[in-house]
Amino acid sequence: MADELEDEVREATRELIASKPDGLVWADLEDMGWFDLVEESPGLAVGALFEGLGYAASGSEALDAAVLVELTAAGAELSLDVPPAVVYYPPGRHAVGSIGSGDASQIDGIVLARVEEPATFLAPLSREDGSTTLAVLDASGVSLEPISGVDPSLRLRRVRAQSARVVHDLGVEYAALLAKAARRAVAHESIGLARAILDVAVEHVTSRKQFGRAIGTYQAVQHRLTDIEVALGGAAAVTALSWEGEADSVTVLTAKSLAATALDTAVRNGLQVCGGMGFTEEFPLARLVRRALFLSAFLGGGPQLAGAVGRSIVAAGKAPRLSGFAA
């Protein structure tokens, strides 16, 4: 039964994504009933949507939706009718600005939301005591400019402001929840994308012939593919586990770290087995690799988050078992 529902959801999600080549916006998710589904079975709704988006290397503002539903489900007072645009941190940071008495300052982050001029922003900000809080900011005086990165189809924008008025400070728990929700969704997206790269690679090595045989018959080539499969399998297992019961942040950090590493492996090995073809723009790999460059580093890359996992384990004094049987 559950499997049938899952197949159905994945199929519907794939169709929806395929029908919107410019990328999903908030209204598309409403139309497909995603917001109802996410209330019933959040793991399935987020997993199917983001793995589908990753597989298609589709740009969207769906991450905002995934983050905001988790925040409101946990009691955050945020409007889903006129949602704030979430400001994500650039690689290597944990906040997009700071908050002092009253105002926010030095805002510098990334926005995925597609709405031309958002009325408010939702931004993780560092406090003077070193903690990170989540605050709704008024959009006046905030500049938005397109980022011309490696993957223009993402339509990323950089948001900057010297200072911004704080409408509502939600508190530190919500900042942690935002990081968790966003990383979990991006882990799913990375897994879908790595799977897409693997599929392109498998298709190539089974059709490309050298020395009179398909290059996929060579063990050296097969090993490249199995390394992707193993990295992908491990990342998918931990990401699925992060939906069991109350997800702790270490499990989510581990999931994102492993998903980013699987994606890095898929890029390295996928490009290698596709040879010169893989580097050309007309081959399907180029698009996927561009997205992977962003997604792997977004919200922390593999080695960086592995460091964060280590610090969390040391701070907590115990390691999670990742088996579902942790005491």
Partner: peptide, 11 residues
């Protein structure tokens, strides 16, 4: 010229 992600004029 083959447009490629390694940059212009390479291939």
């Amino acid at each position: 010229p083959i447009p490629a992600m390694i940059g212009p004029h390479h291939i």
